[in-house]
């Protein structure tokens, strides 16, 4: 079932086309990643999904209902963690979460329960009486996530939630995204950090200049570029190289030898590193280093658009 359906969505600011005829579906239970450089149109798309911006053209439906005519329904079922932290510094952590959950119509004991639950979830239960102005960037982010999930939305949108925070908080956030997903939430995650998207997203759309250039799982996206991988093995001396035997190994396509490195090009889906190393050991070749050069999303992006993600 599709949680979110976007059909021919376009947003123009004057002459400038920020989002250009995007069509995509987010299925239930997915962590859907938007990958794109700054200014690619990720946040504009998200703002339209949250009804913060009106689209120039096109339609967005959430759980089968058009959001333009079901604004309240759409807002009740969406939780948003915006790019810029939006919490009140002069309210305690508890008050913040309870305030935002209250905006979604939670009252009384339910409000209390859900607030505590959300704070517990982001690991801030013991800090519920503290004021966010004393929090680190990561803690503020986590509090912001708590504000977004307290009303138990079906769809959670996270717009660059790991910008400018320390590595621990980042890991914590990534883990909580996975946990939320296991609990049945569908998540849209935008980032220009390729590693994060690669780690957590089950479906990824690459966006550039307001268009979706490619969409699929990370394996599918990598397969756009190539279905082979390069294995570089550094060796001590190249006297007794079993090049012919190496070529016999399943999946190996070419074997080249440059000074003290063997460069093997092999089919991507075959895991034959063990066999290759066994063969080398059998022939008394001393291995110094092993490097696998598989394409990553960064190379996919670079190859398709000619630009770096962080340009």
């Amino acid at each position: 079932m599709n949680v979110l359906e976007i059909h021919n969505l376009t947003k123009k600011f004057g002459d400038f086309i920020a989002v250009d005829n995007i069509t995509l579906n987010v299925r239930e239970g997915e962590i859907f990643g938007f990958l794109g450089a700054n200014g690619a149109g990720k946040s504009t798309t998200i703002n339209m999904i949250c009804s913060l911006l009106r689209s120039t053209k096109g339609e967005i439906s959430l759980l089968g209902r058009t959001i333009a005519t079901n604004v309240k329904f759409a807002k009740m079922n969406t939780g948003i963690v915006p790019q810029d932290i939006s919490i009140y510094e002069n309210m305690t952590a508890y008050e913040n979460v309870s305030f935002f959950a209250g905006l979604y119509g939670l009252r009384g004991t339910l409000l209390k329960e859900r607030t505590e639950e959300a704070l517990e979830f982001v690991g801030l239960a013991d800090k519920h009486k503290s004021f966010p102005k004393n929090f680190s960037g990561g803690m503020k982010r986590r509090l912001n996530i708590a504000c977004a999930i307290a009303h138990r939305p079906k769809l959670i949108i996270m717009d660059e939630p790991t910008v400018g925070i320390d590595p621990q908080s980042r890991n914590y956030i990534l883990n909580s995204v996975k946990k939320l997903n296991q609990m049945g939430c569908t998540i849209i995650y935008t980032s220009h950090y390729m590693e994060e998207v690669e780690e957590i997203c089950t479906q990824i759309a690459i966006i550039d200049h307001g268009k979706i250039i490619a969409e699929g799982t990370k394996e599918q996206l990598k397969a756009i570029i190539t279905d082979t991988k390069d294995i570089w093995i550094g060796i001590k001396a190249a006297d007794t190289l079993p090049i012919d035997q190496l070529k016999q190994i399943q999946g190996v396509m070419t074997v080249r030898h440059e000074e003290n490195t063997i460069k093997i090009n092999s089919k991507g889906e075959v895991n034959n590193l063990n066999l290759i190393i066994q063969q080398l050991i059998k022939d008394d070749v001393e291995i110094r280093s092993v490097e696998e050069q598989a394409p990553n999303l960064e190379t996919v992006f670079l190859t398709l658009t000619g630009r770096n993600l962080r340009d």
Binding site: D208, H209, K211, I212, I213, A214, L304, T305, G306, R307
Partner: peptide, 16 residues
């Protein structure tokens, strides 16, 4: 397919 037009470092028009 799609076309990407980028004008940040000279023009780059990519047809995919």
């Amino acid at each position: 397919g799609t076309v990407i037009v980028d004008g940040t470092k000279g023009f780059r028009v990519t047809t995919l």
